[in-house]
Simulated scan of single mutants.
Amino acid sequence: MKILAIDDQKLILLSVEKKLSELGYEVMTANSGETGMSLYETFEPDLVLVDINMPDMSGLKVVEFIRLTKKSKTPVLVMSGNTNEQVIMDGFTLGIDDYMKKPVSLEEMAARIKRIIGVPATTVNTTEERNEARMLQKNVVGVVIPCYNEEDRLLSAEFKQFAHKNLGYHLCLVNDGSTDNTLAVLEELQNANPNNISVYNCEINGGKAEAVRQGVLHLVKDEQFDYIGFLDADLSTDFRDFDDLVKTIENSDFKIVSGSRISRMGANITKESARKIISMTINLIIQTILGMPFKDTQCGAKIMDREIAMNMFNEKFITKWLFDVEIFMRMRKFYGKEQTKKLICEQPLKRWIHADGSKLSMKDSVKIVGQLAQIAYSYK
């Protein structure tokens, strides 16, 4: 049995192809509607799996080609993040057999395909646990994780587990000129899941700001990423909260969604008391410089659209730690203050834990005041 999968997102296609091949189907993939239609005629599939939102043409055009131009009854299954009810109804009017809304698990996708065309006679042996819910996300997201001398505290198991289960995410681990065995640890993580984890190596330590900038510029070259974000290596903000930030930007007009470590009922937010007082003082200074009422610019968890990634990271930041403030200052200069306030969302985290071994000391906190003065002068 032959399946043609059409989707412009490489991460999605790789996961779909692997799963269906393991089930015994013969699979061909296409990363555009035009390529998919060409393959349809030569491959003669028993089922077509197609996305709706593709840059060259809508997946509905592929359905029109199959149903109206070719007058074929080949089963067509749509798998898309497009939840517009009119689009879905248009698909069924054209004659699709089923419509799956992302996020959706690989197991559900496989079950629906089996229901439509049956089960292949042979399958490929795999050690993958069958009861695991491996999810195909609505959008493809790149996450930059800067790492400097993280050999002893890198939570490798958490990174592996997240990359394995969340197939629309790609983790870009940036080695910021570490002097310990961090690079080897990162490469081991990449080898465990090469499709969803990559390593970008900076031979010289340039600081967190430059490590994140290099990682973002690396990811933005790949057009499959709808959103690009960054996250601290210690996972003080964990993947569950980061995924909540992604859901917010997916369902809004915000261009950047930033985590906020504001203490509130029902949230697990812990900081050292002295550190908390210093943070509050610094935040007040930052609000004054920005002229905008952001409560926590320095949270190390942010997600942005491609426009922000392309326009705000081209030039090096002037500070090593306060690049978050610089991003907002650059946005203010690019969009204007009032528009910038509408484009940035601060979303309170459900949990945030100060991790032992933080690279930012109390002495560094004093230097921050001087760096803020430098930012105020440079971006005035």
Results as ranks from 00 to 15, higher is better:
Pro293Cys: 05
Val76Gly: 06
Leu4Tyr: 08
Lys333Ile: 14
Glu151Ala: 03
Asp8Thr: 13
Asn311Met: 15
Asp234Gln: 00
Val50Asp: 06
Gln374Leu: 09
Ile285Asn: 02
Gly291Thr: 05
Ile52Phe: 09
Ile256Tyr: 08
Leu173Asn: 03
Cys345Val: 03
Lys255Val: 08
Met292Thr: 05
Phe43Glu: 08
Glu129Pro: 06
Asn175Ser: 04
Gln371Phe: 05
Arg115Pro: 01
Thr93Pro: 05
Thr297Arg: 01
Val63Pro: 11
Ile353Tyr: 01
Gly266Ala: 15
Glu151His: 01
Gln137Met: 07
Thr83Trp: 10
Pro103Lys: 11
Asp176Ala: 06
Tyr148Asp: 00
Ile269Met: 06
Asn84Arg: 10
Ile375Arg: 00
Leu245Tyr: 04
Gly336Phe: 10
Cys299Leu: 05
Asn175Thr: 03
Leu183Asn: 05
Gln137Lys: 10
Lys316Gly: 04
Ile116Asp: 14
Ile204Arg: 12
Leu183Met: 07
Phe317Thr: 02
Leu68His: 15
Glu132His: 12
Thr179Pro: 05
Ile96His: 11
Leu217Asp: 09
Met37Ile: 08
Leu11Ala: 08
Ala355Phe: 00
Thr237Ser: 04
Ile12Leu: 11
Pro293Thr: 04
Met280Lys: 07
His164Ile: 03
Gln86Trp: 11
Gly95Pro: 07
Ala355Leu: 02
Gln287Ser: 03
Pro120Gly: 14
Leu235Val: 01
Phe328Ala: 01
Glu128His: 11
Val216Phe: 03
Ser156Val: 10
Thr179Ser: 12
Glu223Asp: 13
Ala5Glu: 04
Asn125Thr: 12
Val104Gln: 15
Gly142His: 02
Gln371Asp: 13
Asn53Lys: 12
Glu129Ser: 09
Arg213Leu: 04
Ile228Leu: 09
Asp238His: 06
Val212Gln: 04
Met312Phe: 15
Arg153Val: 00
Leu94Asp: 14
Ser198Cys: 11
Val212Tyr: 04
Gly357Ala: 02
Ile308Met: 12
Gln137Asn: 14
Glu346Trp: 08
Tyr379His: 12
Phe225Gln: 10
Ile285His: 00
Asn196Cys: 07
Leu60Ile: 08
Glu17Thr: 14
Val257Ala: 07
Asp238Ile: 00
Ser178Asn: 08
Thr182Trp: 02
Ile249Met: 06
Lys380Pro: 00
Pro194Tyr: 11
His218Asp: 15
Leu360Gln: 03
Arg332Pro: 06
Asn201Lys: 11
Thr74Pro: 07
Gly259Lys: 06
Leu186Arg: 01
Lys18Phe: 12
Phe162Lys: 00
Pro293Ala: 09
Gly118Pro: 10
Leu23Ala: 13
Lys302Val: 02
Lys247Ile: 09
Asp97Leu: 02
Asn191Val: 05
Tyr227Cys: 00
Glu107Ala: 14
Ala163His: 04
Leu20Val: 13
Arg134Lys: 15
Phe242Ala: 02
Glu315Pro: 09
Tyr169Cys: 00
Arg264Trp: 09
Asp46Glu: 15
Phe92Ser: 14
Leu154Ile: 10
Leu235Lys: 04
Lys337Ala: 09
Ile318Val: 08
Met109Lys: 10
Glu326Gly: 03
Leu49Met: 12
Ile256Arg: 07
Thr123Gly: 11
Cys345Lys: 13
Asn201Trp: 02
Gly118Cys: 13
